[in-house]
């Protein structure tokens, strides 16, 4: 088994205050290991995105600890969390969040630019990343000139270009048709083939489970079930994860 890249221990997250307070995550324990595609599934409002945000160091947990590549995010301020994201994590969003005024290659380069890598090397790396997702012929296209599937592929290229240890994808196929969705998942699964990289995919779409090594179910802020995904073996392993 590969080393864990992200470890979450006893994570609780309370959102809001007063009467509107919501206990979004309850005693969540989770490890994301290298070489795995982990799928996080659950109904709307179950805490999937909140968990993704906490694992991705965008949101600090109310209690519990998150370790990314051995670095604990506990007590880190906004800048230190940004540094953790910068160094270890790549994100893919449902609505792509590409920069409309920048071409595909510039969008990808931007992920390197924020990491202080610019110039010819950055452009070559961005070119390579786009080639990996099959968009070498669309380098200079602007997001509005690309289809939804192509835009998501640019977003994936942007997420992988800095060679992060973890790729966290929030409903990456949510805005795509079935065919494009499968293609995107296929790319993400290929990325996870690298034993040093873990991919977490938040999704509603049960058709995508064939790409998962593990499937984790979340309900009402608790991890309630874990299955071995179809990508690995058909056997089912159920465990009460909540409270671990």
């Amino acid at each position: 088994m590969n080393d864990p890249i992200i470890i979450a221990k006893d994570i609780n997250k309370v959102l809001g205050s007063g009467a509107g307070q919501v206990h979004a995550l309850k005693n969540v324990n989770l490890s994301l290991r290298g070489g795995e595609v982990t799928m996080l599934m659950g109904p709307s409002g179950s805490g999937k995105t909140t968990l993704l945000s906490v694992l991705g160091c965008m949101l600090a947990p109310t209690s519990g600890t998150v370790q990314v590549c051995g670095v604990a995010s506990e007590g880190a301020n906004a800048e230190q969390l940004a540094k953790l994201r910068r160094e270890h994590i790549g994100f893919v969003f449902q609505t792509y969040h590409l920069f409309p005024t920048m071409s595909a290659v510039e969008n990808v380069q931007l992920a390197l630019d924020v990491r202080g890598l610019c110039g010819r090397i950055a452009r070559a790396k961005a070119h390579d990343a786009l080639e990996k997702v099959g968009l070498a012929h669309k380098l200079c296209s602007y997001p509005l000139e690309l289809s939804g599937g192509e835009q998501q592929r640019v977003a994936i290229a942007r997420a992988i270009v800095s060679d992060p240890s973890a790729i966290l994808a929030d409903e990456p196929t949510g805005a795509l048709d079935g065919c494009n969705g499968q293609a995107i998942m296929s790319i993400l699964a290929t990325i996870a083939a690298d034993s040093d990289r873990s991919v977490l995919v938040v999704t509603h779409d049960s058709r995508l489970t064939s790409f998962a090594d593990r499937i984790i179910f979340i309900e009402d802020g608790r991890l309630v079930d874990e299955q071995v995904g179809n990508a690995r073996a058909p056997k089912r392993r159920t465990a009460a994860l909540a409270g671990h």
């Binding site: 906004a78 540094k83 910068r86 994590i89 969040h97 920069f99 924020v114």
Partner: peptide
């Protein structure tokens, strides 16, 4: 703001 939030999610520093 969406773009700035995306940059921030990508780990950009405030200075950037």
């Amino acid at each position: 703001l969406d773009e700035f939030a995306t940059l921030r999610a990508m780990g950009s520093s405030r200075g950037y």
